[in-house]
Design a binder for these strands. Sequence first.
DNA 1: AACCGACCCAACCGCAAAAAA
DNA 2: CTTTTTTGCGGTTGGGTCGGT
Length: 238
Amino acid sequence: MGRAPCCEKMGLKRGPWTAEEDMTLVAHIEQHGHSNWRALPKQAGLLRCGKSCRLRWINYLRPDIKRGNFTSEEEDAIIQLHTMLGNRWSTIAARLPGRTDNEIKNVWHTHLKKRLESSGKPQGATSAQKRKPKKPVAVAASEGPASEPASSPDQSLSTSSDSDDSMATSVENTGSFTSGEFQIDDSFWSETLAMTVDSSMEAGDPFGCASPTSSNNEMDFWVRLFMQAGDLQSLSQI
DNA sequence: AACCGACCCAACCGCAAAAAA
DNA sequence: CTTTTTTGCGGTTGGGTCGGT
């Protein structure tokens, strides 16, 4: 699938992962960690490139991944975060416990984007209502290495034009951000995310995110985020 | 029951940033 | 300081699945 091969030319396997490969990868990471993705497949005895192993782990095998349908709250959060961040999926994912950037990206492109585009009619049926439940997780390790820290907030803003377009659309449709003039700079994220990490640490969450079952921390994040955004807006008017 | 189009999502690629030498 | 290596990110693809006809 996909484009021209990159691993195949080196004699490495491509395509869907087998259960055996998954088990091998999980076992190796649980035992040795993943300090060196490039060397990992060789050490683990996998005929995959490091990139492929990393992707499989991050998007599917990681023990803290929350599988299943996105709740309407999560979808709303994605929409609002995308309004502010554009296509910075990893940053958005960092704020959604247990969700991966790839998954969020898929959800956005498959139905959230369409939802916003369809006559400004927000909060329609969720993916859970529209489609059947997801397949159960093939391999679900009970514990493993800690997830990577939240992505750096000071990445440059998205350069893609479509993110700008969707931003304007989302602002109108969600109704949560009433001013299109609202701008976010690096200092905003430094302060806001630091604040969030602090509160998460207080709640005993070393990943800097709430536990999947805890909506309080998520709500707390949004409350803080909106408060902070409001503060910055008023400051910018001075 | 079979066919077909639409949708979903896992996995790929290229590129840029970060880290190491 | 420069070059090389490694990691991480975002965009994209296409096989598999589902629902409608």
